[in-house]
């Protein structure tokens, strides 16, 4: 991996970035990172994204929260029975509210954890392969490739009229 090197191209237009990504992928160069100022679905589609595993985190957290909320209310009422008006100790309808709130709370928190794990946030390494313009209006395409294919990759990126083309001799972004 230490041999691979990277190139970062910034584009002004979405379709330039999309075309570059599609050509790179068609040529078997798949170690791509795209940068965008807002979630652009054309780029996500070009990179072939499918469902995100974050939804499993939401479901699991929500179910755990609901079950936990119900179990807790049920346990505490059994632990110290307060008989009122001859009604059952386990008064389910009242506990639905707590279960619901706990479902939302744990579902939301576990969604955040799932997001952080899947998107590798927080990103603590130094931002070498980055350009402040990517949060403004430019779209970036970063590719790492073995040295013998580097010229081919550069050619594809160059072909879409980048505003800027930067060599990254260490190939940092995909090094890990």
């Amino acid at each position: 991996m230490s041999e691979t090197k990277g190139i970062l191209a910034s584009y002004e237009y979405v379709d330039s970035a999309v075309n570059a990504i599609e050509k790179l992928r068609a040529g078997g160069l798949k170690k791509i990172t795209a940068y965008m100022p807002y979630p652009e679905h054309l780029i996500e589609d070009a990179l072939g994204y499918d469902q995100s595993p974050v939804r499993v985190w939401t479901l699991a957290g929500g179910l755990c929260g609901a079950a936990g909320g119900f179990a807790f209310t049920a346990f505490t009422s059994m632990d110290w029975p307060l008989v009122t008006g001859g009604k059952p100790i386990l008064s389910m309808p009242a506990y639905v509210v707590i279960s619901f709130e706990m479902m939302v709370l744990f579902g939301a928190l576990s969604t955040i954890i799932g997001l952080f794990i899947n998107s590798r946030l927080p990103y603590l390494k130094p931002m070498v392969v980055y350009d402040p313009e990517f949060s403004g209006g430019r779209f970036g395409v970063y590719i790492t490739a073995p040295p013998e294919r580097l010229d081919e990759a550069r050619g594809i990126l160059q072909g879409q009229d980048p505003v800027e083309l930067r060599e990254d001799s260490a190939g940092v972004a995909h090094a890990s």
Partner: peptide
Amino acid sequence: LGWRGTDREWHH
């Protein structure tokens, strides 16, 4: 949190 706006970040 070191947000860079990469495709992976935006997707999730």
